[in-house]
């Protein structure tokens, strides 16, 4: 089967607007969008720029807007798009460097603000691991699946209008540590996400949850952070607010 793949061609150094180009690619039932892009670059047009690495939905390199939804090119099969025409665009809301290659610097800079590492005032045990109950592990299991592919932040209309908004990926990262029973910097992180560019910008549109290729409950996590901030302000901060992933409930 032949499909037409439509891609914007753009170089930030020389172009003001993208020009669209169409390629015809022969696909099998197994061909993924990434396979199709790879075949364009190696067989038709070496100038097409896009990122890829693991092919298996774990590295987060190939997040793109494919037929109107943010997804990973590597685990999206062309046949599943149910269409002879496939449009592939760079992640919306990200500055474009070239073709499908976006600038990740602002995205990773926001992640770094969240203190994306364990902070604790408890001493390291002399022998063995810190204990954590299965219940407590499951509180972070869903958020820890994030692969930083940017599909969520890029799907967020607030992010489109306000580039300073931390966005769902960074806020989920904060949530992952806030909910970690081993971490004691809850207040510090709530102070970070409770600012003007943090959780209160979220309008609960749920695009970030619906476009996450790993099933991370981004909007729910942001809501949980909001509740935690309010409970802390009311002096009820020790109440655990947990997002129940459907498969865990």
């Amino acid at each position: 089967m032949n499909v037409r793949i439509r891609v914007p061609r753009f170089n930030a150094e020389t172009d003001a607007t993208p020009k669209f180009q169409e390629y015809t690619v022969t696909v099998t039932p197994q061909t993924t969008v990434l396979d199709a892009l790879n075949s364009i670059r190696s067989e038709q047009d070496g100038t097409l720029a896009f990122r890829r690495s693991c092919r298996s939905g774990m590295c987060g390199s190939c997040g793109m807007l494919i037929n109107g939804r943010n997804r990973l090119a590597c685990n999206t099969r062309v046949v599943d798009l149910n269409n002879h025409e496939v449009s592939v665009n760079p992640l919306p809301g990200f500055p474009v460097i070239r073709d499908l290659v976006v600038d990740w610097d602002p995205f990773f800079a926001k992640d770094a603000v969240m203190l994306p590492y364990l902070v604790t005032d408890q001493p390291v045990p002399a022998e063995g691991e810190r204990l954590q109950s299965r219940y407590d592990y499951e509180r972070i299991d869903n958020a820890a699946r994030c692969i930083q592919c940017g599909c969520c932040s890029s799907a967020c209309p607030v992010q489109w209008s306000n580039g300073d908004y931390y966005g769902p990926a960074a806020l989920t990262r904060a949530y992952r540590f806030v909910e970690d029973s081993r971490d004691t910097a809850v207040r510090a992180r709530l102070d970070i996400v409770g600012t003007e560019t943090g959780v209160w910008r979220c309008h609960t549109i749920f695009n970030c949850t619906s476009d996450c290729p790993k099933g991370v409950l981004n909007t729910e996590n942001i809501q949980a952070l909001k509740r935690k901030i309010m409970l802390t302000r009311l002096g009820l901060g020790s109440i655990a607010v947990k997002v129940h992933a459907p498969e865990l409930a």
Partner: peptide, 20 residues
């Protein structure tokens, strides 16, 4: 080496006793 990774916060799955 594995305990150190846990101390850094690696989200290891847990046994019913709360161990790695």
């Amino acid at each position: 080496a594995v305990y150190e990774l846990e101390h850094m916060g690696t989200p290891f799955s847990r046994t019913a006793e709360g161990r790695i």
